[in-house]
Design a protein around this nucleic acid. Structure first.
Lengths: 236, 236
DNA sequence: TGCGTTATCTTGACGGCGTCAAGTTTGATT
DNA sequence: AATCAAACTTGACGCCGTCAAGATAACGCA
């Protein structure tokens, strides 16, 4: 039923408008990108009046926040899957999450831009925060593992981002994230479009990314200070 | 006169509406950011009807394109100035342009987002293209110099970006750009806000950037193949 | 079973947006 | 001085997000 969540159920009441709106929003983002994204258009596709979504999301920002939460979950799942695959194939785990990050951006650029774009999100939203902490935690965990640190998985995954402000490995974390985020955003925002114009251009870029760029990234990580003087687990 | 380019000259005709619109746009971007940017608001500040700008810029995209051109020029000038300063102080030239890039983003985040954001620009605009080629050329030049390549300055600065698709140093160029662009955008888009919340948080981030991150960047560059025999390495 | 309560959705309206067509004013050219 | 093209205004159109008020339907409880 409700293929794509777009079909109305009854007459007056929808049944699951919240999910239908999210589905419609994803479809609009996939078709027109974040520029052509409109609350009224989503409501139209859900077969509902423009004011209906207000009851479920409050306003446009609320809907975007729900989408962004899905985006963070997508990031977490894809990165974890990439790690699992690397573990099997013998590839590097850190490179794997970087490629997973890029994969998410390329697969759903609209949703990715909702997550990381300049559009305002509900800053206090619990679900959003939880999803963001989880995704960030994976990045932190893999960076620390790549540095040879011992990591208590549970602890890392639940720490708030602000608690990393004094982390001994923050520079390395930011380094990894900057490369991955920078390349991903430049690619989906069209900064690299001139380089993609040649036949096979995009493939070449992706090869460079998962090849030489990851090599350089890992080489840079190996220049890290050998031992952290402050124990990252309990740090004052 | 025309302080800020906002004051009208005569009654019906403005005199220099084009410049006044650009000034007003910059002011709006500085005050409200790219989210609160509106053509009508700019026209209002220039003391002119909503439809007046059409004659000078065509439409909203035209105005944004003019702003983006200024943004690229800003990037070029700041990066060149940073190189000059590094040349005097004995600092690293490549790190200097990376810090100049970040400086531009932090100084005028609104304009920076117009340059690199998801907003559409007039893709065929000559001035915009020229400014972009110049800024990109500086990045390429310094990356190649850091790799020990000999560089014919004029040639590099005028090549179109698409012509770098087969460049032997493309991976290193993308590596440098990704780090710099990634860190800059994450900072001004609020991704690092939780890390800035602690007292002195932003200063710490900037210190990390111009310190350890640049060290890692330069270390990674030193792993480049000595001769451009273009062997795309793989780490699988 | 029937009734009231409450969540859900519609209707209609408001102001603001970008853009267009048509009309008005101005400065420049001849 | 007459003409003309450029510069700007006016008014309108269809969008947008959001709000207040009303309609509807599902649910809990007698």
């Amino acid at each position: 039923m409700t293929a794509g969540g777009v079909i109305k159920r009854g007459g007056y009441h929808h049944g699951d408008l919240r999910q239908a709106m999210i589905d419609a929003a994803e479809a609009v983002l996939a078709e027109k990108g974040v520029g052509g994204f409109t609350l009224r258009e989503c409501a139209r596709r859900a077969g509902v009046s423009p004011a209906a979504p207000a009851h479920h999301f409050g306003n446009l920002v609320g809907l975007l926040t729900a989408i962004a939460t899905l985006g963070f979950d997508d990031l977490s799942q894809t990165m974890e899957a990439a790690v699992a695959k690397a573990e099997v194939s013998g590839g590097d785990r850190l490179a794997a999450i970087c490629e997973g990050y890029l994969e998410v951006a390329l697969t759903r650029p609209g949703r990715f831009r909702v997550v990381f774009g300049r559009l305002g999100l509900k800053s206090g939203d619990d679900d959003l925060l939880r999803a963001a902490v989880r995704a960030f935690g994976i990045l932190v965990r893999e960076t620390k593992l790549a540095l040879g640190r011992r990591v208590d998985g549970e602890e890392v995954l639940t720490r708030l981002p602000s608690s990393y402000a004094g982390d001994a490995d923050l520079a390395e974390i930011l380094f990894v994230w900057s490369i991955t985020h920078g390349f991903s955003t430049m690619l989906i925002d069209g900064q690299l479009a001139p380089l993609e114009m040649q036949p096979g251009g995009r493939e070449r870029l992706l090869t460079l990314y998962s090849g030489r760029l990851m090599d350089m990234l890992l080489a840079a990580m190996r220049t890290a200070p050998a031992e952290p003087l402050a124990n990252p687990a309990s740090h004052g």
